[in-house]
Nucleic acid binder design. Structure first.
Lengths: 226, 226
DNA sequence: CTGTTAATGGACTGTCAAGTCCAGCAATTG
DNA sequence: CAATTGCTGGACTTGACAGTCCATTAACAG
């Protein structure tokens, strides 16, 4: 997913990589707070104490930097969710994930939304490369959730015929919508309501009788992505 | 929710009102396609064939215009949903609403998202007035859905103890998230999945036994807005 | 140690967009 | 029909920002 820019393939020393990374990290933070359009190159450079020539030494242009920022946010978001999602085996696990998200938004007073979702909204119609990049990031994320749900199936908490891929989509949609409403209302409440509804929907796929954990692989319908 | 600008309270002739409205409508379309940051005053004026002095005759500044655009989009979105939502009395009614939304996105090849949701994302951290305005618009929208759901309760399709306010929030969250994912993937599929999940969740509040329609008012828990 | 290439500083340019200003026209009203 | 006020045209100013350029220093390789 890396950019095929002349600059990106340029050899970098350790110091160079460090500077490049500093720029990306600062840009990611600023963009998260103010959006791509709300952050100028000069803003980023002022924050990192670097100069214009450094910026254009490591990146072709602003778009190139934005693409690196997207990549960075992909790492951050997936890294944030992975520990909670990779080993789902009980409804409590899922609840912990839900609580972690709500708590995270609460501590920042519900400012800012999803680092990836807001980028989608801002860039999808303007930058085809970014669109594809973000689509890939969300595909990873969905995959991660679907895997967690597969764990729930194996633990006998979800029926084997539950379509984990589609369920993952519905969960992410609720999360994205909930984050948007929470940011708008400056309250975690809509986020909680949305996530609780998503989880309730998952629970409707719980086996009617408590099933013994099966080690057989579930046979899901194919996702629309395939 | 109108802006308290000196300009807005200025007396307008019929012709003036027309020009002002033409500017707002063109701006609303452009902003819908390219976002607030992606549309310049000159773009709007070029589209409408009006001059700079007209713009600043009718609006204080760009923000003032944006606020008028938000108001316009509020009217459009609520006007779009109202006919389908105001008289829900069967699951088919709800399905028709769902299909209308999916169809609308399909005909525009999944470009653009929710006219209000994307404005939230872009403005919420930059313009407190816009934030409040959009929050109000969504409150109206939720209210509209809750009312529709209340109709479902009265028709005996939903249990009387269903929290229609919270359910409305969860439905809007799914819709917003679904629209975002659909726009990103250029496919209506995630939107369909999200809306179907939301409706499935609503169905979980259907009475276990087909109830006779009751004329008694349902006693909902208070919404978090209150 | 010397040449090559990476890393950095920072001034400069060109473009674009927001907002101002003034001058002229139109319409309404007393 | 005159005066007031709204309506319109468009040039002009100001500032911000992306991107360029050249000069200098630092690091590394042969």
């Amino acid at each position: 997913m890396a950019d095929l820019s002349e600059v990106a393939s340029r050899p970098l020393t350790g110091k160079g990589r460090e500077t490049r990374q500093r720029i990306i990290d600062a840009a990611a933070d600023l963009v998260y707070e103010r959006g791509v359009a709300g952050v100028s190159i000069d803003d980023v450079l002022r924050t990192t104490g670097t100069s214009k020539s450094q910026m254009y030494h490591y990146f072709n242009d602003k778009n190139d930097l934005v693409h690196a920022v997207i990549e960075r946010q992909r790492e951050r978001v997936l890294g944030f969710h992975q520990p909670e999602l990779e080993s789902l085996s009980s409804w409590d696990d899922l609840q912990r994930w839900r609580n972690m998200i709500v708590e995270t938004q609460a501590v920042r007073a519900c400012r800012y939304g999803c680092p990836l979702g807001s980028l989608v909204n801002e860039l999808v119609e303007l930058d085809e490369f970014a669109r594809a990049q973000l689509s890939g990031a969300f595909a990873n994320w969905e995959q991660m959730i679907a895997q967690g749900l597969a764990g729930m199936v194996e633990a006998g908490k979800l029926r084997g015929d539950a379509n984990t891929a589609d369920l993952a989509v519905s969960v992410i949609a609720s999360l994205q919508g909930g984050l948007l409403l929470a940011e708008m209302d400056r309250s975690t409440r809509p986020l909680e309501v949305a996530l609780d509804a998503a989880i309730a929907h998952l629970r409707s796929f719980a086996p009617s009788e408590p099933e013994p954990p099966s080690s057989t692989r579930s046979t899901n319908q194919p996702s629309y992505r395939e």
